[in-house]
Design a protein around this nucleic acid. Structure first.
Lengths: 267, 267
DNA sequence: GCCTAGGTCCCGTGG
DNA sequence: CCACGGGGCCTAGGC
């Protein structure tokens, strides 16, 4: 058995029962995540019942009460407990027993170790934000390939058109033949977006002369902007990122294929 | 507790980039499972797209090509790759990059480590059989062998019959000679189950023409579904998993759990 | 390979 | 607290 004290990462190789138990309890008390590699059997009682004989597996105990038992194959854990369950560690003869249970639904997972090869405990700091995303470009491209995502009967004329005051995201013609300028925002559109759109439209009016329809396309409109929008004769439309993504993937299939196949070849 | 010498368990604490890369490659080549604790960012491209900034996490690489990235909370991995994906390990400046990709569907996960606190690699032997006792199939089989569990005078005609919209769990004829379609749910049957049953019945009506009786067989009916059931002219019947279990025992002899359970191979 | 259904699904969101 | 919908769902079983 060796102990590495640095960085709060504790590593125990083939710990004795006493050491392992102490490490488990202390790790959980301190809000650490614990990983065990060892030989164990698993029993589950609750929404169903299951039994798994002894074998070498990886067990993860998370500070939020999540439990995972992973076999050496497959994506999914063979047994688990969702967050919120309560752990209990004890000695049973020459074995270590871990119980993880919760009351709603009533269920319990029991791990019985007859060998622990490695026990690691560490506090993990992870504040990063996870985003499953579609960006502004993606939305624009999705509309180009599937204009009906914007509106029935809509046709795209230009994307990224240069105007004196910048770039218009999308220009098209609607079902009634009206020239339509679309300003896309991924998140909430604010006062600035509205003003920007207004500038674009004014610039285009200078070119043509006919009436131009202006639409803000975003996941939402910031509070207090509806009045401004109305007074300028502009519209707001909500966009569904998910549907955009699907459209995008349909169209980009080939491109992604290329990108990934390049990686496959290089690997 | 019996202590075994560490059988091929390799533990590297805060390894250098070179050591970590070598360990990763050798571990995968030897069919070992590898666990990494460290600070990394994750990017995913494929069926969707996701981004996760740097944070301390647990990564598991399995010999069958499964990849898991676990944050310190939650049951589910934040990013992953199912079995069958191809790993690629490389150095990028002062960082280690792991790619895991597959071609169907085309997708790729990229892990970028700027710190590895611990790397563990080990061949895990796990040949145990996993058994789950009473599931939907078991209930269906119990009814096939003891139809009176459903109703006096009931006869099973077909199980798992294909209809245009899917598979009907059980079809039979009741005591009054009525064609009866049974939809089985292990737990509480919800709105979706009712709708599913309705779809099946409509499909069958198209075939025959005679009236068809539809029954939901479950351990309970979700609140608010009785009205829907009534309006569609369907019925609900409670099933007792315990009696099903006993029926299976009786029919399958003393074979016990071996025959009762569904087996998941562990090659 | 696609399709279909099930899951100890988990996980959000809304009532 | 429960009900509902969605998921990069995963996984198993048929065809």
């Amino acid at each position: 058995m060796r102990l590495y004290p640095d960085l709060g990462l504790k590593v125990f190789q083939a710990p004795s029962i006493g050491v392992a138990l102490e490490a488990l309890k202390e790790g959980f008390r301190k809000g650490e995540l614990t990983i065990i590699i060892g030989r164990l059997s698993v029993d589950y009682h609750g929404r169903a019942r299951s039994k798994l004989g002894f074998g070498e597996r990886v067990v993860i105990l998370k500070p939020d009460g999540a439990l995972l038992v992973h076999r050496p194959h497959g994506h999914s854990p063979v047994n688990w407990q969702p967050p919120g369950s309560i752990f209990d560690f004890k000695r049973l003869g020459e074995k270590i027993v871990i119980n993880a249970g919760r009351s709603n639904p009533l269920e319990k997972v029991t791990l019985t170790f007859d060998r622990i090869d490695l026990l690691v405990s560490s506090r993990l700091r992870d504040d990063a934000e996870f985003s499953l995303y579609v960006d502004e470009h993606d939305i624009r491209d999705a509309l180009v390939s599937e204009p009906e995502l914007f509106e029935e009967g809509f046709h795209v004329v230009t994307k990224e058109k240069r105007v004196p005051s910048g770039f218009v995201d999308l220009i098209g013609v609607d079902r009634e033949g009206r020239f339509t300028v679309i300003e896309i925002k991924k998140g909430l559109a604010g006062r600035d977006s509205v003003i920007q759109l207004k500038r674009y439209i004014d610039g285009l009016k200078g070119e043509g002369g006919a009436a131009v329809r202006g639409v803000i396309l975003a996941s939402g409109l910031a509070r207090g902007c509806q009045g401004l929008l109305d007074s300028l004769g502009l519209e707001f439309k909500r966009v569904d990122p998910r549907r955009c993504y699907e459209a995008l993937m349909k169209r980009r299939g080939g491109g992604l294929q290329l990108e990934l196949s390049r990686w496959f070849i290089s690997s």
